[in-house]
Amino acid sequence: MKNAIEIRGLRKSYGDVDAVRGVDLTVAAGEVFALLGPNGAGKTTIVEILEGYRKRDAGDASVLGFDPGTAGPDFKARIGIVLQSTGIDPYLTVAETVALYSGYYPHPRPVDEVVELVGLAEKHDERVLRLSGGQQRRLDVAIALAGDPELLFLDEPTTGFDPSARRGAWEIVKSLAALGKTVLLTTHYMDEAQYLADRVAVIAGGKFVAEGSPATLAGRDAEDTWIRFRLPAGAEPPPQVASQQPEAGGYLAVATEDPTGDLHALTGWALDHGYRLEALEVLRPSLEDVYLELTGAPGDDARTEHAASSGRQRRRRR
């Protein structure tokens, strides 16, 4: 199948600020793709260019075969948009709102089905005015789904949600992906990207700094694993393992490329001396660690170095 989104060398400035500085991106049809990055990194600008709200300064962009900069109602009929902030008329009911928007599309989904899908069936005839923030956000999603779009843009869809509401929203996205919809998602929650996305791009300072599957992003799978435990009082550090780092509270952290072997050596050493390795844990770098390493202060030349050490600091604090 064709790619849903293709962009090459995308650029956009607001005055002196270069919001997007040369981005290439391909999203296959049926894929869930997450743009991950801190506030102001350029996520929303990219998404709004693809939705047709903003004109790009340079580069090529194709969304479902349309140029989003010039496409009209035919293009809008095939996409669904959840903007970063919700805007719904407060005086209509949930069902009226969905019906209003369905009417704009050539092949809408049945209103009740959409209301049910986002879990607002109980609020079917409630005015928007009386919905909670989370419920309004779900109505946002319902409106985006009203036209049965092939491609869905979700700009920070769960910001401000409580944990159970987030889970609910995730299940909705999962079910859309199962229906073969393409989803472009922005988020600053690592777990959200990890749970939902087939692929992730990390953006900082208007550029992609890494791209890949959540499991392998930025060599995450190849990075060192850490073994950490509390060194028994009076014990000498074990001689069997290299690259040890003593930490506050009597902890010892060991970076290892061979967790199985090193763990075996350590536990053997502990048993030989009759030590208990308290608070023993094996840590793989999380997506969050990778993210923090990648998105350190933008524009700072020493950023990788600095971010890498602060990332490690975080890990040590655990």
């Binding site: 948009i81 919700t86 409106i143």
Partner: peptide, 11 residues
């Protein structure tokens, strides 16, 4: 309220 912007995102 963002209602106009949302409308612009529809056909």
């Amino acid at each position: 309220a963002g209602i106009l912007k949302r409308t612009q995102g529809t056909p």
